[in-house]
Amino acid sequence: MLNVEGLVKQFRIRTGLVDAVRGVSFSVAAGEILAFLGPNGAGKTTTIKMTAGLIHPDGGAVYVDGKNLVTERNAVLGKIGAVLEGSRNLYWRLTVLENLLYWGTMRRVSYRQARSRAFELLDQVGLTDRARSTVQTLSRGMQQKVALCQSLMHHPTVLLLDEPTLGLDFESSEGIKRMVRTLSDSGTAILLTTHQLDVAQELSDRVAMIRGGQLILEGTTKAILEKYSQPMYSIISAIPWPLNLVDTARKVMGNVAQVSPDTLQLIPQDGDTDAIYRLLNALHPHPLLRVERHQADLAEVFQQVMSKGALA
């Protein structure tokens, strides 16, 4: 389990000091995926690198399974795996298998165990047949899968993933996502940063959003999406709505709007759970395609939180 407590980081630039991270705290339990989201320059990468010990924080602490990263560095690093964005994470002149054996033994896994673990992981990502190919000959998607494998050679309890699916095609991206889900199911705590909000929504159990170095929203993905969903219905017609029917609907329910030729939108009064049924009665027997309640996605939540701040 990962515990991050009150991380603070300032960087010195020409014009003075910049607060990159201001008192960020969060935790990721075993088997949980926390999506750590924010715009460029919000402090995501600085936070993830402080969590890995690659950047020294000015304040705060990082604990993995109760061990402090600073005072028990080697023990903590033995429990962390990381795939970092913007890095190759692998030696391009070595083969896939040589890379996995190298990084495994560097992380104190015996050669024999590293070999069997390497083939186990390659089997999971469907790259067994490329074990003896040099990394430079692989596609970007395959390289990313191998990078993920190398970070897992020592069975880490915490996995840090910085943009793991960036720039990958659909199939490769799905492969990485499947692997991440499997890891989470097997009890690995995963901290995921990404700009691909659909990926974050699909994978995460919890979400934390950061802006200007501060956490401004944190909670379970389900609760956040529910909180930001509005009591609003869309009634989608199989054919464009006739004008006379739209007028009839407006007379019955004042708060109906036609938002596109085939879509009517209803925003009921607070607590008026009967409104949608009254409207549907008024529209009977016009052929409908579907009726749906508004369900926010992470992209909408992100946009709203970043522009207006989090809801109370």
Binding site: G53, L54, G78, G86, W92
Partner: peptide, 18 residues
């Protein structure tokens, strides 16, 4: 340059030793 320095710094050995 190759983007592996950070991974080297993540192994549970002191950088001087490595």
């Amino acid at each position: 340059q190759n983007g592996t320095l950070e991974q080297v710094m993540l192994v549970p050995w002191s950088p001087v030793t490595v």
